[in-house]
Each structure stands twice: as C-alpha cells, then as structure tokens.
Amino acid sequence: MIINNLKLIREKKKISQSELAALLESSRQTINGIEKNKYNPSLQLALKIAYYLNTPLEDIFQWQ
C-alpha cells in the first residue's frame, strides 16, 4: 500500500488542488483521489508532482 503526504506538503506550499492539477495537466478530482488514497498515481504523474512541489518523491509517497 502506498501512503502519501501530498495534502500536507501541498498545503504547506500554499498550493490549491486546482492549481496543482493545472500544473500537472490533470484534474482536481485526480489530486483529491490521490490525497485520499483512493487513487495511486502513475510513475509519470508521481514524478511530475514531486517536480512541481520541489520535493523528493520519497517524501511524498511511501510504501507501507
């Protein structure tokens, strides 16, 4: 199971779900699903999230 700190990191950087979704060329619903652990992002999307949040991938997503 993958757990994530996306919501915590996103809020700390003062970025809304909609703003992050626009940067990622994704939907706000996708970001919401990832944050609620209802959806696991593809590797490509996970890497883009890490890039746009300027945060190491392993700080956002962790195996448990």
Rank of each mutant, 00 (worst) to 15 (best):
N5R: 08
N5A: 05
E35Q: 02
S18G: 12
L23M: 14
E11T: 12
I60A: 01
Q29H: 13
K12A: 14
P41L: 07
S16M: 05
L24H: 00
P41Q: 02
S27L: 05
L53M: 05
P56K: 10
S18N: 13
A46I: 05
R28M: 13
L8G: 10
K14R: 12
S42H: 06
K48N: 06
P41N: 03
I31D: 01
L53H: 00
K12G: 12
S27I: 06
N4A: 03
L20F: 05
P41C: 03
E35K: 02
A22G: 11
Y52D: 00
L45G: 00
L43D: 03
L47G: 07
L57F: 06
K12F: 10
Y52M: 10
Y52W: 11
S27F: 05
L45C: 09
K7L: 08
E35G: 02
L57W: 04
S16N: 06
R28G: 07
S26Q: 12
L8D: 14
Q64M: 08
R28I: 15
Q64A: 14
R28C: 11
Q62K: 12
Q44T: 12
K7F: 05
P41G: 03
I60D: 01
I2R: 09
I49E: 00
E25G: 15
E25N: 15
I34W: 04
Q29C: 13
F61I: 01
Q64C: 11
N40S: 15
G33M: 15
S26I: 15
K13Y: 10
R28A: 14
F61Q: 00
L57E: 01
K36L: 14
W63S: 03
E11M: 12
K38I: 14
E25T: 09
L20S: 01
I2P: 05
N37Q: 08
K48Q: 10
N32T: 09
L8E: 15
Y52E: 07
L57Q: 02
N32A: 15
N5S: 04
S42A: 05
S26H: 09
L24I: 15
E25P: 14
K12S: 14
K14Q: 12
I9V: 12
G33H: 13
R28F: 09
E35S: 03
L47T: 11
I9Y: 09
L6G: 03
N54D: 14
N4D: 04
D59L: 12
N4G: 03
Q62I: 10
E19R: 14
L43S: 05
Q44C: 14
I3F: 10
K36E: 15
E35D: 01
I31H: 02
T30W: 11
R10D: 03
T55Q: 05
L57S: 01
I34L: 07
I49K: 00
Q64T: 12
N37E: 06
T30C: 15
N32Q: 15
Q17T: 08
Y51M: 10
N5Y: 08
N5W: 09
S27P: 11
N54W: 06
N5K: 05
K13L: 14
F61G: 00
I15M: 14
Q17V: 13
S26N: 07
L24D: 00
W63K: 03
M1P: 11
I60T: 01
K12T: 12
W63L: 04
E11L: 13
N37F: 06
M1D: 04
N4Q: 03
I9F: 08
N54F: 06
T30I: 15
K38V: 13
A21D: 03
F61C: 03
